[in-house]
């Protein structure tokens, strides 16, 4: 009796902790969509009324559209470059060459270098090499931070790969090139999609490195940071934040769907 009471008390405590935990994680983020529909420039309760005018204003904002376009350009270029480089590295590492562990360790190290340090280092390098600060320098910087993610995702895909599948394809008359397209590519496709998405999100999200390297070509996070100086523009930024949130949710759901396809033996993806 006594024991059960203690246990249920314990259970209630745990439940309360869990609620607080989740609230702490999500409440700040959920304030964004909430106030983005509030008909007031001031971010304060009580809510005044429902409006979509901030979204309309956001859509009209030329500068913001330009920043979004820049971020997209960088994101697409970075995710493609990081995934292709990662694919080559993973393909070679899958052969189990000597020094594989050392290389993998070195490849993952950038994850543990603070972005602020990396940003300064890249800025010094780029200016020393007389490369003008632009989207191109941002792309270079983002490839550095995205590659560890790309390699990690792709190598796990290649590690479970039976090498005799490629041998069988060669044996059945295909060239090395066609073997890649008919066997290797469809089997590692879920890894490629995951790497593209992850790299895109990491690039999209980055402020520090873009801030150091972008020059006058602002990316979206850099633009948002600049807008925060003008209080009357804050609701626009909230609307933008809410939109990014929704887009991220869709993207992550898609990535998860692809990952599950992958764990089911990649069988849904025919050639």
């Amino acid at each position: 009796m006594n024991g059960m009471q203690v246990q249920s008390k314990h259970g209630a405590g745990l439940a309360a902790y869990a609620v607080l935990y989740v609230a702490f994680l999500y409440a700040p983020v959920l304030l964004l969509p909430l106030f983005s529909f509030n008909d007031s420039v001031f971010i304060a309760f009580p809510l005044v009324g429902f409006t979509t005018k901030w979204y309309a204003a956001m859509a009209q904002d030329e500068e913001m559209r330009a920043a979004l376009l820049n971020t997209m350009k960088v994101g697409v270029a970075v995710s493609l470059a990081a995934t292709i480089l990662g694919l080559l590295a993973a393909k070679i590492l899958a052969r189990g060459l000597p020094g594989r562990r050392l290389f993998l360790g070195a490849a993952n190290l950038p994850l543990f270098i603070p972005d602020i340090v990396l940003g300064i280092a890249l800025l010094i390098l780029v200016t020393r090499l007389n490369i003008p600060l632009s989207l191109n320098s941002v792309i270079l910087g983002h490839i550095v931070i995205c590659l560890p993610f790309a390699i990690a995702v792709l190598i796990s895909r290649f590690d479970g790969f039976d090498a005799s599948l490629e041998e069988a394809s060669r044996d059945l008359g295909e060239t090395a090139w066609m073997t890649f397209w008919r066997v290797t590519f469809p089997l590692v496709l879920p890894g490629i999609v995951a790497s593209l998405l992850l790299s895109f999100i990491v690039s999209f999200d980055d402020f520090l490195i873009a801030f150091f390297l972008c020059g006058t070509d602002t990316t979206l996070p850099v633009y948002i940071w600049g807008e925060l100086r003008f209080p009357y523009k804050l609701p626009n930024v909230l609307a933008l934040g809410a939109t990014i949130l929704a887009a991220s949710a869709v993207l992550i759901a898609f990535a998860e769907w692809i990952r599950r396809l992958g764990t089911n033996g990649a069988k849904e993806i025919g050639f």
Partner: peptide, 30 residues
Amino acid sequence: NKRPTNMVFQSYAIFPHLNVRDNIAYGLKP
């Protein structure tokens, strides 16, 4: 791919992303 030999592998090396028909037809395409 240029030899008049074909192999049955120890692991069978059946292509997991293709059905039985496409597995058997694989080498006829080239």
